[in-house]
């Protein structure tokens, strides 16, 4: 097995009741790389992302076929404890969703539910995570104030810090900048660049320029199928398929 492959999606089908949202997806995610999932709305890219940490388990009447291998082990195996699995795979959502708690408690939450009790260890890890998410300088004086008082961009970086605090190996991002202004977006993109040194990142985005800027590999989806996947440079300069080039040049979608 190629050791640089962190996660592999193997012949994955996904159904919402009778509707098949994903068709035989085959995709590999390389360690310390950013993979962007692009495609028009409803193409299945978010569905795929949510299959990677089994968030779709929450949807009633949904069904998965095929495998998602995390370091060679199928996460849909019945023996897998989904709670532990999710600790290893962080997620950042489309809309910033901090808990209605203080900045500190937001970041400490994942540590606490994972059994960390030592106050000084928690404090240390909270500070480290906020620094990693490039938020520390902005919030260090209001760390015990409500997270809902932060700006949208700050809230989203707080959500990133919250995800990083539990030291996941993979970070999934579901259109993390879609609710943010360009300045906040730029900050998050810079952050993604830094984070890939430590993490494997999968990002869903509607923004073509963003995919081009932040990712190493881009996968293009259409109607629940993976159309083309390649190095980002190649996808945006010389895509092999006409559908891909039509989409990235804005001719449809």
């Amino acid at each position: 097995m190629d050791s640089s492959i962190k996660m592999a999606v193997n012949d994955l089908d996904f159904f919402y009741a009778d509707f098949q949202a994903l068709h035989r997806i085959l995709l590999k995610f390389t360690s310390n790389q950013v993979t962007a999932l692009i495609g028009p709305s409803g193409c299945g890219k978010s569905t795929l992302l949510r299959c990677l940490n089994r968030m779709n388990d929450l949807i009633p009447y949904s069904r998965v076929k095929g495998q998602v291998l995390l370091e060679g082990r199928n996460i849909y195996d019945p023996n897998v404890d989904v709670v532990t699995l999710r600790r290893h795979i962080g997620m950042v959502f489309q809309k910033p969703n901090p808990f209605p708690k203080s900045v500190f408690e937001n970041v400490a939450y994942g540590l606490r539910v994972n059994g960390m009790r030592d106050r000084s260890m928690i404090t240390e890890r909270v500070e480290k995570s906020l620094k990693q998410a490039a938020l520390w300088e902005e919030v260090k004086d209001r760390i015990h104030e409500s997270a809902l008082g932060l700006s949208g961009g700050q809230q989203q970086r707080l959500c990133i810090a919250r995800a990083l605090a539990v030291e996941p190996e993979i970070v999934l991002m579901d259109e993390p900048c879609s609710a943010l202004d360009p300045i906040a977006t730029q900050k998050i993109e810079e952050l993604i660049h830094q984070l890939k040194e430590k993490y494997t990142i999968v990002i869903v985005t509607h923004n073509m320029q963003q995919a081009a800027r932040v990712s190493d590999v881009t996968a293009f989806f259409y109607l629940g199928k993976l159309i083309e996947v390649d190095e980002t440079k190649k996808i945006f300069t010389r895509p092999s398929l006409k559908e891909t080039s039509d989409y990235i040049t804005g001719r449809f979608g």
């Binding site: 940490n53 968030m55 929450l58 709670v83 532990t84 999710r86 600790r87 795979i89 962080g90 997620m91 959502f93 809309k95 969703n97 901090p98 808990f99 209605p100 939450y109 994942g110 539910v113 994972n114 959500c159 919250r162 995800a163 539990v166």
Partner: peptide, 14 residues
Amino acid sequence: PAELKEASLALGAT
């Protein structure tokens, strides 16, 4: 909001 619930579950909370 479901977002809060998902955020918690995604962090490995039961």
